[in-house]
């Protein structure tokens, strides 16, 4: 994008953070572009049509829908957070605006969040220490807002042993610390 300006991760580093604690692996995501898409009032039908044409899934409440290049999850009534590969979609907001027209309000969200992919054989015990989500019973693709150590986060279940967490970028260190502390307590 701008060669003169080097990007920094949420931890002030050049490379994404990776931590292993016992069976748990925590990997910071720096290669995901994010944007919010909200239907303008009374324009849901228009948005649905445009989204379908653009290959953008708009799943129902509490759900994450994967896709290529766009994946998305429901965050509020008629509002989604859209994920796409950062390398090809750094300008995700412009691209979505162009694709969706004036039936949607689009806002770049890439750097509002720090994302982590968590993997282990089973994340249930870790989630029990971190948030009130009933992770064991949640279906794969379950996406919800929840709270981890005072921080509002989005949690996406991708399997019994895989989850993605988006938390406030400025609190990346506090969020990682919370996950690490819980993992150490369980290791």
């Amino acid at each position: 994008m701008a060669d003169a300006l080097k990007a920094m991760t949420a931890f002030g580093l050049r490379e994404p953070k990776q931590v292993k604690i016992g069976a748990l692996s925590i990997k910071e995501l720096t290669d995901v572009a994010l944007a919010s898409v909200a239907a303008r009032k009374g324009r849901m039908a228009d948005l649905s049509r445009a989204a379908a044409a653009a290959g953008l899934p708009l799943p129902g409440p509490s759900t994450h829908a994967p896709g290529d290049p766009y994946s998305s999850f429901w965050v509020a009534p008629e509002m989604w957070l859209v994920e796409a590969p950062f390398a090809s979609h750094e300008l995700i907001a412009d691209m979505l605006r162009a694709a969706l027209g004036d039936g949607a309000s689009v806002t770049e969200q890439t750097d509002a969040w720090v994302g982590f992919d968590l993997t282990a054989d089973d994340l249930t015990a870790l989630m029990q220490r971190l948030c009130n989500v009933d992770f064991a019973m949640a279906p794969d693709g379950h996406a919800t807002r929840t709270v981890m150590e005072h921080l509002g986060v989005y949690l996406i279940k991708r399997g019994k042993g895989a989850a993605r967490v988006y938390g406030p970028r400025s609190s990346a260190e506090s969020l990682l610390h919370a996950v690490e502390a819980a993992a150490v307590a369980l290791a």
Binding site: R40, K41, G42, E108, Q109, D111, A112, P168, R169, S170
Partner: peptide, 15 residues
């Protein structure tokens, strides 16, 4: 409730 207004926080998105 009938206003066409959408809101989202971008506090952290921009330095």
């Amino acid at each position: 409730p009938e206003m066409d207004v959408q809101l989202i926080s971008t506090t952290e998105a921009w330095a």
